[in-house]
Design a protein around this nucleic acid. Sequence first.
DNA 1: ATAAAATGCGAGCGATCGCTCACATTGTCT
DNA 2: AGACAATGTGAGCGATCGCTCGCATTTTAT
Lengths: 208, 208
Amino acid sequence: MQRQTRTTPRKRPRQARSKATVDTILEATTRVLVKQGFDGLSTNAVASAAGVSIGSLYQYFPNKEALVLALIERHMEEMNTAILAELTRVAKLPLAEAARCVVELTIRAHAVDPELHRVLTEQVPRIGKLARLREMDEICNRMVAGLLTARRNEIAIRDPDLAAFILVSTIESVVHRAALLYPQRLRDPRLIDETTLLVTRYLGVAAN
Amino acid sequence: MQRQTRTTPRKRPRQARSKATVDTILEATTRVLVKQGFDGLSTNAVASAAGVSIGSLYQYFPNKEALVLALIERHMEEMNTAILAELTRVAKLPLAEAARCVVELTIRAHAVDPELHRVLTEQVPRIGKLARLREMDEICNRMVAGLLTARRNEIAIRDPDLAAFILVSTIESVVHRAALLYPQRLRDPRLIDETTLLVTRYLGVAAN
DNA sequence: ATAAAATGCGAGCGATCGCTCACATTGTCT
DNA sequence: AGACAATGTGAGCGATCGCTCGCATTTTAT
């Protein structure tokens, strides 16, 4: 294959008409992606699913990857800002409560559109832009590390940076894995309880 | 695309010659997969990388997916038996020690061929045969649950099944994530320490 | 030695895919 | 109203891919 490597749009939509076109295309991309998977995703299929000419698609997206990348960027951005906002919100709460809130938010976020989330996270490593992801991940890590450092005297942690990595990895991964392998567990409140317990015991702030 | 869905080999290699061919093909698949990724993987490319005719390839593998599936099955089988063996081996050790051993093994397993492991785990959800994977995962879960139940009086766990899910997810995911995002951490002994700490504190058997 | 089975070969068919380009239509500005 | 930019269209080119099939070669069985 190996045609294009550019993933930035070739043209910015200036008029309302073209903005609508771009939105339609991205919506169609989502639909096709969820229904067919990344392999069944072709630019022709997206264009026709969007009811838009293939030529129009290529006005705004230089290639197939750019389509998925736009989706990933949008999705991850949403997730990350939601998490950061929640972290800020719970910064002053008792740590056990704060942990529970973050766990709950993570689970809620995964429950919104699990299929899309799954397909997108699968595709992330295949798209070049791991860097961007890593960046957001590290912002999150640093923020957690900051929180841990600020309340160092409350917790049984020596290295806040390493602990932050462990915590972020753990919460994200347990939830992600539950969503992937045992979707029904996402509805189970005991998953929240137990994940919170994992976190609080690790931090040494568990109630029980 | 949508050509074949069968993933079982069409013919069993009976003679030594054909067994060698199959091995060569699988080796080549590994090489191509690591170098080109799943998208760059074509049956033609594999055949030529293996120095084998495309016709021969199709004697033993009905399609592209079957190639990757064979690799996944083999790889996961190895991993699983290694983990199960280790679990059996450490069953009588103090829990803190046992936890550390399992964490160490998991990290070692990920360090063998991180690239291949990464590519393969990426492809797992795309191949139909999630079922097989889930099966192995559940064997592992049940075994851990069994261990936890057997030593119920030593630990601060109410539901061994849920705890087993959490533990298996946690260890696998933290290590996997480290391998994916921060490969150098795999060499860091503090990752072992901290992951072990996470586990032991959760179980309520931490030394410190 | 000979037949039969197993294995290996690779040209090439049909289908699909990514993408371009010449042209038509719609919107904006003066 | 006229000019120019922005946007939309889709036939179709070139490339690749999955896979088949007729045939050659090697191994096994008798």
